[in-house]
Simulated scan of single mutants.
Amino acid sequence: MDHNYYTSKTYGPSDPMSKDLWVNIDQLEKDKVKIHGILSNTHRQAARVNLSFDFPFYGHLLREITVATGGKLESALSVVVISVLNANYNPFEDHSINHLKRYRTALVVQWDHVHLQDNYNLGSFTFQATLHNTGRIVFAYKEVDSYSRVDLLSRFFLCLIFYVRRRTIYEYHRVELTKTRITNSSAVEMMPLPTCLQFSSCGACISSHINFNCSWCHRLNRFTNNNKGNDSVRCFSSIARI
């Protein structure tokens, strides 16, 4: 599926790619896996994680990400939202923990046997998010069937938000996935498409083949797209918040 900024593909339980995209943390050496103590034993908690690489998100480079017990990743400024399986989870038990595995070119985060705060008896959820230095994002779901029986407002999505002014939130773009296709042993792979921000010269921009109406941002000293909203506002936000 083409989302302008990303292409996404969902793999079902019978597709071999679903198994390949799941990182089996249990088989890794213990010294290569970090069990985050705070996230593992606290309800509604978040912690910052330094990346060992530049992670491109909508053309912006991130070196830090915030991992939340609620099944999502955010940036430190809350302008980046990567919702893997967002809900009100509580680890409850010692084995229900958040694992973090850091590679030189990727970060793997696993929510392992987490339960819903208000419905423990519904069962546990186990799922992962992997961020690659190429900008590729993988959501992998091992145990999530109970999710379909819960009336939750959240969805599976990527979202870039700018705080333009105080109390003013501008949603730049959203990639929303189909809820019914998320099942046990499924996975979603999202590949970034070229954006105007990666170009630093007129020649590179003109010779590109992307479907954006680009313009030069003097503040940012880069091209930015004007496919919706006010470009000057977006240009200003890029400098102030990213």
Rank of each mutant, 00 (worst) to 15 (best):
4 N>D: 12
5 Y>S: 01
6 Y>C: 10
7 T>P: 00
7 T>F: 01
10 T>E: 05
11 Y>I: 09
11 Y>N: 07
11 Y>V: 06
13 P>N: 06
15 D>K: 07
16 P>S: 08
17 M>P: 00
18 S>P: 02
19 K>M: 05
19 K>N: 12
23 V>G: 01
24 N>L: 02
28 L>S: 02
32 K>F: 04
33 V>M: 02
36 H>P: 00
36 H>M: 03
37 G>V: 03
38 I>P: 08
47 A>S: 15
49 V>N: 04
52 S>Q: 13
55 F>C: 01
56 P>D: 09
56 P>S: 02
57 F>L: 04
60 H>F: 14
65 I>S: 00
65 I>G: 00
66 T>E: 15
71 G>T: 02
72 K>C: 10
72 K>T: 01
73 L>M: 14
75 S>A: 12
75 S>L: 14
76 A>G: 07
80 V>F: 11
81 V>S: 10
81 V>D: 11
83 S>F: 00
84 V>W: 00
85 L>G: 09
86 N>G: 04
86 N>R: 12
87 A>H: 13
87 A>I: 01
88 N>H: 13
92 F>P: 00
103 Y>E: 15
106 A>Y: 01
107 L>Q: 04
107 L>V: 10
110 Q>V: 14
112 D>V: 07
116 L>P: 06
121 N>F: 10
122 L>C: 03
122 L>M: 08
128 Q>H: 10
129 A>Q: 08
132 H>S: 12
135 G>H: 06
136 R>F: 00
138 V>L: 08
139 F>Q: 09
141 Y>A: 00
149 R>Q: 12
153 L>Y: 12
154 S>F: 07
155 R>S: 15
157 F>E: 12
161 I>G: 02
162 F>G: 05
163 Y>S: 08
165 R>L: 12
167 R>E: 07
171 E>H: 04
175 V>K: 09
176 E>W: 04
178 T>W: 09
178 T>L: 09
184 N>G: 05
187 A>G: 05
188 V>I: 15
189 E>M: 11
189 E>A: 08
190 M>E: 12
194 P>K: 09
203 G>S: 13
204 A>R: 10
207 S>L: 06
208 S>E: 11
217 C>S: 15
218 H>V: 07
221 N>T: 09
221 N>A: 14
223 F>W: 15
227 N>I: 12
233 V>D: 13
234 R>L: 11
236 F>E: 03
236 F>T: 11
238 S>Y: 14
241 R>H: 06
